[in-house]
Every structure is written in structure tokens, then in C-alpha cells.
């Protein structure tokens, strides 16, 4: 892809072209980016259709603040609480990062629910976007589980006892409940290993699942295109035209009225009558003469 029309040919531009061509030849990156970035979207989109991206941006914010917190947090029953205290009280900007992670969780829940409401009210989960909704609803459930598992990591009284109740609730579920509770608690009792387990679930298991499902969700959104608002100007026009066509068809189907019934040829040839004056009435069934 040599650039011939702009500026003199210098070695840097040439090298850039070579690098881009090298990568594109082996990965199809140009095609991919073109497919993602230059695809058309309907002319009219609502501001509410930015909530999905906003949820993803907040997920990114949670990832960044979470990684920073993980650099100082110690996932051990004996030191967890103290490390949270150090992050909050001693560390430069520590309170801000922890605060952003905490409020970011709430904000993400709010935005994810609003996003779901938008998709519901736009009827955007209908054909062909059913599976986009399925992956999205699983992301919503995973977001809730992030809130649940992250709450314990603070390792203070409130978090501890709220999580004890949550795990007891899990244990009360029929059939699988007791086993699931044992998995969450890392044993029959709530103890130090429970903290490590929640840490692993919060840091590795659910984020891995969420990244996977966000990727699928995003791929489906790009492939199927974002839904057009059902009341966009173009849709309103299309519906009005359809409505008009339907009315027209209904009018055309009327057996009587403004449309003319075609003149039928008489079934029998006119009787031969000597009187020439009566022949005109026989050939016109409508009898417009009299």
C-alpha cells in the first residue's frame, strides 16, 4: 500500500507501510479493523444505546483499579484487614483507588441494569439478536456475583457476616446447595480458606468468564449491527408506507364503490331481432341508456 499522492517518499513512510503490510498479510488485521470500525450503523441511534459501551468502560475501570488494589492487598485472613487499612489510610491516593473500585461496582450494576432496560424497551433482543441477549444476561449475573465475592475481601465484620448469611442461603438450596456452599467456603466451616477462595473467584474465575462473554457479546453486536430504534424517522416512514399500501389494497378489493366493475361480454349472442332500436340495450348490461 504505497502512498503516492501525499508528500515525498521518505524511508519512514516506506517502513511504516512495510510493517502494516507485514502484519496485515499474516493476521488480516486491516480487514478486521475495517469490518469493526467502518461498518455502517443506522442513521438514527438513541443516546440510551451508549449504555452498553459505558458498562464495558466501567468494567475496564474496575479492572484497572482492581489491579492496583491487588498490588497492595494481602489475601490472607490474618493480614487482609490490615492491608485494607493501609490502602485506605496510609497509601498515597489509596483511598481514592479503593473508593473508585467500590463506587465503580455500584455504578456498573446501575448501568448494566439500565442497559438491559434499554434493550428490553427497544425490543432489541428479538430476531436475530436473541443470543446477544443471552450472553448479556449472563454478564449481568456475573456482575452481581462480582459484587458478592468482592464484598467479603474487605474482611470486616459487616462483610464477613453478610457473606456468612449469603453462603448459608446457598447451602439451603435443594440438592446441589450443600455441595456448592462447601465449594464456596472451602470446607464445611467458614474460615481463613474461604477468603482465599473468594479472592480467586473474584480475581480470576469471574473476570475470565466476563472477558470471554464480553468478547462474544461484542462480536455479536458488531456482526448483527446495533438495533435501530423502533420509532426512528426511517422506521416511521416505512410503517406509514406499509399502512398506506394496506389501505390501498383494501380499497382495491372492494366489490362495489368507486372502482368500476369491468364490463362483461354477454354469455349468449344477442337474439336476432328485427327491431334495430332494441339491440343497443342488449349489449350494455349496465343499462346506462335509460
Amino acid at each position: 500500500m504505497a502512498t503516492k499522492d501525499i508528500g515525498p517518499k521518505n524511508p519512514v513512510a516506506k517502513t511504516n507501510d512495510m510493517v502494516v503490510d507485514y502484519v496485515d498479510h499474516r493476521t488480516g488485521m486491516k480487514t478486521g479493523l475495517n469490518w469493526f470500525m467502518n461498518r455502517n450503523i443506522p442513521a438514527e441511534t438513541s443516546w440510551f444505546q451508549t449504555l452498553g459501551f459505558t458498562a464495558m468502560a466501567l468494567f475496564g475501570l474496575q479492572a484497572i483499579t482492581g489491579i492496583i488494589l491487588a498490588m497492595y492487598y494481602k489475601p490472607d485472613a490474618a493480614t487482609a484487614f490490615e492491608s485494607i487499612r493501609v490502602i485506605t489510610d496510609d497509601l498515597t491516593w489509596g483511598w481514592l483507588v479503593r473508593g473508585m473500585h467500590k463506587w465503580g461496582a455500584s455504578a456498573m450494576i446501575v448501568v448494566v441494569f439500565l442497559h438491559m432496560g434499554r434493550v428490553f424497551f427497544f425490543g432489541a433482543y428479538k430476531y436475530p439478536r436473541e443470543l446477544t441477549w443471552v450472553t448479556g444476561s449472563l454478564l449481568l449475573v456475573m456482575t452481581m456475583f462480582m459484587g458478592l465475592t468482592g464484598y467479603l475481601l474487605i474482611w470486616d465484620q459487616k462483610a464477613y457476616w453478610a457473606t456468612v448469611v449469603a453462603v448459608n442461603l446457598t447451602a439451603s438450596a435443594p440438592v446441589l446447595g450443600p455441595y456448592l456452599a462447601d465449594v464456596l467456603r472451602a470446607g464445611p466451616e467458614f474460615g481463613p480458606n474461604t477468603l482465599s477462595r473468594f479472592y480467586a473467584i473474584h480475581m480470576l474465575l469471574i473476570p475470565g468468564g466476563m472477558i470471554t462473554f464480553i468478547a462474544i457479546h461484542l462480536f455479536l453486536v458488531s456482526k448483527l449491527g446495533i438495533a435501530e430504534p423502533p420509532w426512528s424517522k426511517r422506521r416511521t416512514m416505512v410503517e406509514r408506507e406499509k399502512e398506506e399500501a394496506k389501505r390501498q389494497a383494501a380499497r382495491d378489493r372492494l366489490p362495489t364503490g368507486r372502482t368500476r366493475v369491468p364490463v362483461r361480454a354477454p354469455e349468449h349472442p344477442p337474439l336476432r331481432t328485427p327491431a334495430p332500436t332494441s339491440s343497443s340495450t342488449a349489449t350494455t348490461p349496465e343499462g346506462g341508456g335509460s
Binding site: 469493526f36 470500525m37 467502518n38 455502517n40 450503523i41 443506522p42 442513521a43 441511534t45 422506521r235
Partner: peptide, 12 residues
């Protein structure tokens, strides 16, 4: 709708 639309980048 897509034919009459506009590109994802930068509008969306």
C-alpha cells in the same frame, strides 16, 4: 437502514 446509515467510527 444500514445502507442509509453512517459509519460506526466516529459517529457511535
Amino acid at each position: 437502514a444500514k445502507r442509509q446509515g453512517k459509519p460506526f467510527f466516529p459517529y457511535a
